[in-house]
Design a binder for these strands. Structure first.
Length: 420
RNA sequence: GUGAGUGUAGCUCAAGGGUAGAGCACUGGUCUGUGGCACCAGUGGUUGGGGGUUCGAAACCCCUCACUCACCCCA
């Protein structure tokens, strides 16, 4: 049996790289204009970090984390998400004191041991942003605006933005109790999972995809109607900010985030395509998290986006096939050596060029050039060496011209230098 | 963790007990130094792996592995 990738792990092959490059470059460009700075963090963290932040009752912590004993016995985990490590790092390096507001972004792999399916892998890439420190409701709006612009520039339409507020430690307990009360006499109609959830985390019943569960939720109390004054005002200001920007959204009172640390604003971008895993990006506020992890009592908000999911939806015309500026077809040892010299000169000037080292027939070299999508082919053979001129063929138009070998390097640089 | 489907050439797929095939791709030729098109020829397979039934298995049975989709959950 040949060795192959571990289940749920994927090779990103050369043909797909242009898409990844495009996404990452666009993200970096946009993050720069939104004044977010990049942070690169370890892939392994102490297990406690995730248990404390994401919540011990969540599926991620309960059954999806890659957790190992390190050689000294310490429990370590492949990061399943990016927010907790960012917060950890800010606290560890006391970066909150250095900036009025820490606006950071990251791009990198996350790991969750779920059963793979379309749009879901055990190693997957997320791009995320966090704004940690004193801020206001318009910070939430900025986050959403960023994603809105990103999707627009990616030419991804058919996305819906869903919004909700999940309250705070002041108002959520009351609501939870109310919801529990509501669900009490509906247990028989709920799936097994939701019966359990009613006791542990009743809000998770709200976004159960089971049809019969959804039926039972008719007339269920909605968090938005039980927000405390501050949460209510916050949510109103977020909505009003989105209105100013003409951002289209849908209030989804059933939208509940899966991680324990979320407070107030929750949002999610969903796609009409992409099968069952249709959440492309999601995020929310986590006002208690920094303090929970041992830092100052400052609010925070962030989002994460699944890069594979974005790439699956992106417009392929954004990454056109790459052209090779020049292919040199050389025939014979002397010609090959001359070609090598030209190749070196072009590459020194950062111009893409290629030749064949096999001394194949001209025909097969032309074929190769064609497959490389070469713009020009420079032919150097016996005839050319004798006459001191090389043949330059433009592949698309089939036009050919003779160029003196003496000054060939300069001539080619002139022709191939990309216009600025 | 549960369920269903699929594993045959580099890729997409035929053959449903009787000699493993096609298209695309690749290599060469027609065209001895000029790519794409056309035609011709060639290379390429322990039919995912193991066991069983049979005179004979890619096919039928059992086990196993992998992939895919869905449940669950989530980006």
């Amino acid at each position: 049996m040949n060795i192959q990738t571990i289940k749920g792990f994927k090779d990103i092959l050369p043909d797909e790289i242009p898409k990844w490059d495009f996404v990452e470059q666009l993200l970096r460009k946009l993050f720069k204009s939104y004044h977010y700075k990049e942070i690169k963090l370890p892939i392994l963290e102490e297990t406690t970090l995730f248990a404390r932040s994401i919540g011990t009752g969540t599926d991620i912590v309960e059954k999806e984390m890659y957790t190992f004993d390190d050689r000294d016995g310490k429990k370590i985990t492949l990061r399943p998400e990016g927010t907790a490590p960012v917060v950890r790092s800010l606290i560890e390096h006391n970066l909150m004191a250095a900036t009025p507001l820490a606006k950071l972004f990251y791009i990198g792999p996350m790991f969750r041991r779920e059963r793979p399916q379309k749009g879901r892998y055990r190693q997957f890439y997320q791009a995320g942003a966090e704004a940690i420190g004193p801020s206001g409701p318009l910070q939430d709006v900025e986050m959403i605006l960023f994603l809105s612009q990103f999707f627009k520039e990616m030419r991804i339409s058919n996305l819906t933005l869903e919004m909700n507020s999940v309250g705070c430690p002041q108002c959520r307990p009351n609501y939870k109790a109310l919801l529990q009360e509501f669900l009490k006499d509906k247990q028989t109609g709920l799936c097994e999972n939701c019966q359990r959830r009613t006791l542990i985390n009743p809000m998770r019943v709200l976004d159960c995809k089971n049809e019969s569960c959804q039926k039972m939720l008719h007339n269920a109390p909605e968090m938005v109607h039980f927000l405390c004054g501050e949460c209510h005002d916050h949510f109103e200001e977020v909505k009003s900010g989105l209105g100013v920007l003409h951002t289209v959204y849908r209030i989804n009172p059933r939208l509940v985030r899966g991680l324990d640390y979320y407070t107030r604003t929750a949002f999610e971008w969903k796609s009409d395509f992409q099968g069952a895993q249709n959440t492309i990006a999601a995020g929310g506020r986590y006002d208690g998290l920094v303090k929970e992890l041992g830092g100052p009592d400052v609010p925070g908000i962030g989002f994460a986006m699944g890069i594979e999911r974005v790439i699956a939806l992106m417009d392929p015309s954004l990454t056109p096939e790459i052209e090779l500026p020049l292919f040199i077809a050389a025939l014979g040892k002397t010609a090959q050596e001359a070609a090598l010299l030209i190749l070196a000169e072009l590459r020194e000037n950062h111009i893409g060029a290629e030749m064949d080292f096999q001394n194949a027939s001209l025909k097969s070299q032309m074929k190769k050039a064609d497959r490389y999508n070469a713009r020009y082919v420079l032919i150097i053979g016996e005839d050319e060496l004798k006459s001191g001129k090389a043949t330059l063929r433009q592949m698309k138009t089939k036009e050919q011209e003779e160029l003196p070998l003496q000054t060939i390097g300069e001539t080619l640089l002139e022709k191939l230098r990309p216009p600025i």
